[in-house]
Computed example of a mutant assay.
Amino acid sequence: MNKIIKKLDSKSEQALNYMLNKSVQSIKSGNFQLDVRTDFILTTTISINISREEYLIITNEWSDTQKEGINYFELNARIEKKPADIKTKKDPKLKNSLIHYPNFSSLLLGATSKLTEIIVYERIEKGEIEEVKYDSAIFFKRADNLCFLIKNDDSITGYLKLVTKDKQIEIELSELKQRIKI
């Protein structure tokens, strides 16, 4: 059996390690899509504010296996100075400022609270001659017990699901296996 393994790379794991104990208040994206019939938001990229000029950027890329066409995804996490897919500029009159143009969506998580737990979950897809193991979701828990999940959407769109409802998080994680706890 041909096996493919697609885990977060070392830079992604370093970025997630860096996030532990960082305060988080909002999640930004250049293009949230909300369907009122679901308990999640779809987007192409996620930008989580860490500080004025630090963001955790999470992306997702779709791929499939050569022989059986089994879908799999490659999550990526990086610390960047600007949010992804959001137009920004610096204001020379203000020290350490980054101005966001009003072309983005933001999900407010309430009062600022530190991240106390980050868990990466993996999925295994088996065909007759191919098997794929890949990181599928990243779970975040804050000190105030608010939790959110960022997971691939299981479609060729490459979208990410942003889930904040505990019951929906449980559903999304039901077929996944915990791979690492940060």
Score class of each variant (00 low, 15 high):
M1L: 11
N2S: 12
I4H: 10
K6I: 14
K7D: 12
Q14E: 15
N21G: 02
K22W: 00
V24A: 01
V24R: 00
V24M: 07
Q25R: 10
S29P: 06
S29N: 06
S29D: 11
N31D: 15
V36G: 02
V36Q: 05
T38R: 09
L42E: 14
L42H: 06
T45H: 00
I46P: 05
S47I: 12
I50V: 13
S51K: 11
R52S: 11
R52L: 13
Y55F: 10
S63D: 15
K67A: 00
E68V: 03
N71C: 10
N71G: 15
E74V: 08
A77H: 03
E80D: 01
E80K: 05
K82N: 14
A84F: 03
D85S: 09
I86C: 12
K87C: 04
T88Y: 03
K90D: 13
K93C: 05
L98C: 01
H100Y: 14
N103G: 14
F104H: 14
F104K: 03
A111L: 13
T116M: 06
Y121T: 01
E125V: 11
E128A: 12
V132L: 02
V132D: 08
A137R: 03
L149E: 10
I150R: 09
D154G: 11
I156R: 03
L160W: 06
V163N: 07
T164A: 06
K167T: 08
Q168P: 03
Q168C: 09
I171C: 05
Q178N: 10
